[in-house]
Design a protein around this nucleic acid. Structure first.
Length: 477
RNA sequence: GCGCCUCUAGCUCAAUCUGGCAGAGCAACGGACUCUUAAUCCGCAGGUUCUGGGUUCGAGUCCCAGGGGGCGCACCA
């Protein structure tokens, strides 16, 4: 039996439940306020008792009890037969019951939506991951804390925008469809543009277009957007994720490390009210300034082994082997050094710490170090054993950039399918003159994971990537 | 891609180890109840135990194959 025809098109004047609870905390048990309010939300629990009924009504600001009396409440018998999960709106006086529960004593009410499917065990909700992630709407209202986590995410993103605006950064939107994938190391998704008879790539990074904005005179520019990487799914990996990149003219990587601290600690402060948090049971203090250390220093701290790029490839490979780190044949000394750091050190840095100065061969868009040959000016902010982002002194010399791309193309020929292709458009932009510029990248999902204290990226993505459901054929089979 | 684990009522889970009538709570349905708080009480109903095959007098349970899902590894800057 459908009640669709009863559902109004509009429901006016309802007050957030949290506001009702906040405003009438002073009522004594058994006291009636004399004030009538209208509330709306989902019926979470229903306790009927003859000529009395109590319902728990939840909206996105909180819960309040509905107190219903046969003698007072319209359509009382109908109300007693609502389903858990139905949406209703109710008008009534704010009272506190004899047993002390703040309530709306319902005079009249309207059905606003019917829940035709159950929503799991009323105490334990739904555990099945298949339901939690494929039918997230169920997870959002059946499981404690899930919706709050996404509200937290929203606050983090809003905070990042505001903090950047406060430093005069301008937000832009650049193409998602790229003729040449660039700006990072990753396998792209390929798509086809019918009217151009050409393949395009979903972007793997924002970098190259944003730098062209700087060349064009947008001196502080950022984009907060989705990027796509054709990779496996894991606790920290989803094939599409949200990345912040920001570029600032006249700044170097130290300035950008400071910007990272400002954004990360500022987002924590705005979203959580503090920069001192607990992640997976361990304290983490994001209050700036963060410690700075070179890559070699942190490797030595964690492993007790001294490493240095000037040791050369053979010596570094011997060290890697002694630390049980496997190294692919094609790696050069810089890649070996970075691999040792990635495998042995980074997961053990609780931080927060800025790890600085990476080998040139792993950073083809980054400017050479001003005093350390073979290195580039790159800092990675690490907290809780994870990389939150990147900070760079950007490479601005077009000739150098061309040489780096050529080295990448050579790697690609050797079988590295994540090495960057040549991008002539980008080089031409640099040839028009790019001022000294600092850049950052920040993984928004991983930042939210840290602040929300969850260990799986699925918990901070509303609709994480899942295998297509069996039996769900694509539109064009 | 490799390894491990898992699949029982709408939901959350027992029964599986050690083969012997497939169960409970919640939800649903019917009823009682004027202060409940995961209300309580009475009643009723609910199953292709993921699928297929095998062993056995007898399989939810053991074996094989397949499927869904999870976790780990690999991939992943």
């Amino acid at each position: 039996m459908s009640h669709a025809s009863e559902i109004p098109y509009r429901y006016e004047g309802s007050v957030p439940v949290g506001q009702v609870v906040g405003s009438y905390g002073h009522l004594e048990s058994g006291e009636e306020s004399g004030d009538t309010v209208r509330v709306a939300g989902r019926v979470m629990l229903l306790r009927t008792q003859g000529k009395l009924a109590f319902a728990t009504l939840r909206d996105w600001t909180g819960e309040v009890q509905l107190f219903c009396l046969q003698a007072v409440t319209d359509r009382f018998d109908e109300l007693k037969h609502l389903n858990l999960g139905d949406w209703i709106g109710a008008d009534g006086e704010v009272v506190r019951t004899k047993r002390g529960e703040l309530s709306v004593k319902v005079a009249s009410w309207s059905l606003l939506a019917e829940a035709l499917h159950g929503f799991g065990d009323k105490w334990r909700g739904v555990n099945d991951p298949e339901v939690r992630f494929r039918q997230r709407e169920v997870d959002l209202w059946a499981n404690e804390g899930v919706r709050d986590r996404f509200l937290l995410r929203s606050r983090v993103v809003a905070a990042i925008r505001r903090l950047l605006a406060d430093r005069d950064f301008v937000e832009v939107e650049t193409p998602v469809l790229h003729p040449i994938p660039g700006g990072g190391f990753a396998k792209p998704f390929v798509t086809h543009y019918n009217s151009m008879h050409a393949d395009f790539y979903l972007r793997i990074a924002l970098e190259l277009y944003l730098k062209r904005c700087v060349v064009g005179g947008i001196e502080r520019v950022f984009e907060l957007g989705r990027v796509f990487r054709n990779e496996g799914i894991g606790p920290k990996y989803n094939p599409e994720f949200t990345m912040l990149e920001a570029y600032q003219a006249y700044a170097d990587y130290h300035d950008m490390a400071e910007l990272q601290e400002y954004l990360i600690s500022g987002a924590a402060l705005e979203a959580l009210g503090t920069t001192k948090l607990v992640f997976q049971g361990r304290e983490l203090d994001l209050t700036p300034p963060w410690r700075k250390a070179t890559l070699e220093e942190v490797v030595e701290e964690v492993t007790g082994v001294e490493v240095n790029l000037s040791m050369g490839s053979d010596e570094l490979r011997r060290i890697a082997s002694s630390l049980a780190v496997e190294i692919p044949e094609r790696f050069d000394a810089g890649q070996v050094l970075t691999e040792i750091y990635d495998k042995t050190t980074e997961p053990n840095l609780w931080g927060p710490v800025h790890v600085s100065d990476y080998p040139e061969s792993v950073s083809p868009l980054t400017r050479n170090h001003r005093s350390r040959p073979g290195y580039v000016e790159r800092i990675t902010p690490i907290a809780a054993g994870r990389e939150l982002g990147e900070c760079y002194s950007e490479l601005v010399d077009p000739a150098d950039q061309r040489a780096r791309f050529e080295a990448q193309v050579a790697d690609r020929m050797k079988g590295d399918d994540e090495a960057m292709p040549m991008d002539e458009d980008f080089i031409r932009a640099l040839e028009r003159g790019m001022p000294p510029t600092g850049g950052i990248g920040l993984g928004v999902d991983r930042l939210v994971m840290l602040l929300a204290d969850v260990h799986h990226i699925r918990e901070v993505l509303l609709f994480p990537a899942l295998r297509p459901e069996a039996g769900q054929a694509p539109p064009e089979a």
